[in-house]
Computed example of a mutant assay.
Amino acid sequence: MRLSVIVTGATGMVGEGVLHECLQSHEVERVLVLNRKPCGVQHPKLTEIVHSSFHDLKPIEQQLSGYNACFFCLGVSSVGMTEAAYRQVTYDLTMHVASTLVRLNPDMVFTYVTGMHTDSTEKGKSMWARVKGKTENDLMKLPFNAAYMFRPGYIHPTPGLHNVHKYYKYMTWLYPALRRLFPKYALTLRELGQAMIHAAMDVPDQRILEVPDIVRLATGKQG
Results as ranks from 00 to 15, higher is better:
Leu181Ser: 08
Asn163Phe: 11
Phe72His: 12
Glu61Tyr: 01
Val102Pro: 01
Leu181Glu: 04
Lys184Phe: 06
Thr111Ala: 06
Gly193Phe: 14
Glu136Tyr: 03
Asn163Trp: 06
Lys37Phe: 10
Ile214Arg: 04
Gln24Tyr: 09
Pro159His: 04
Arg207Leu: 02
Thr82Phe: 00
Ala69Ile: 05
Leu64Glu: 03
Cys22Trp: 12
Ile6Phe: 13
Val31Asn: 11
Tyr170Ile: 02
Phe72Gln: 01
Ser78Tyr: 15
Lys132Glu: 11
Leu189Tyr: 02
Val41Thr: 15
Met108Gln: 05
Ile197Cys: 05
Gly160Val: 06
Gly17Lys: 01
Leu32Glu: 10
Val7Ala: 13
His117Glu: 11
Gly66Gln: 06
Thr11Ala: 14
Lys37Tyr: 11
Asp138Lys: 07
Ser65Gly: 12
Arg216Ala: 11
Leu93Gln: 13
Pro183Met: 04
Val89Gln: 10
Asn145Val: 13
Glu29Ser: 15
Gly223Gln: 08
Ile208Trp: 11
Glu210Gly: 04
His198Val: 07
Lys37Ile: 10
Glu48Pro: 09
Met95Ser: 08
His20Gln: 09
Leu192Lys: 01
Pro38Tyr: 02
Ser99Pro: 01
Pro176Met: 02
Gly75Glu: 07
Ala10Gly: 15
Gln194Cys: 04
Val164Asp: 06
Ala98Ser: 07
Lys123Met: 06
Pro176Thr: 02
Tyr175Pro: 00
His165Leu: 06
Trp173Met: 03
Gly17Ser: 12
Asn105Pro: 05
Leu104Tyr: 03
His51Tyr: 08
Lys134Phe: 02
Phe54Pro: 14
Ala195Cys: 00
Leu189Ala: 14
Gly12Asn: 10
Val109Met: 00
Leu19Ala: 11
Gly193Pro: 09
Phe71Lys: 00
Ala186Trp: 05
Leu3Phe: 12
Leu209Arg: 02
Ala186Glu: 03
Gly223His: 10
Cys22Asp: 13
Gln206Asn: 09
Ile214Glu: 07
Phe71Pro: 00
Leu64Val: 01
Gln194Asn: 08
Thr158Asp: 07
Gly223Pro: 04
Thr135Ala: 05
Leu101Asp: 10
Phe110Val: 02
Arg151Glu: 14
Gly193Asn: 12
His117Phe: 12
Arg216Trp: 04
Tyr112Met: 00
Gly160Ser: 07
Leu139Trp: 03
His162Ala: 06
His198Ser: 11
Val211Glu: 11
Val50Ala: 15
Pro183Ala: 05
Gly9Pro: 11
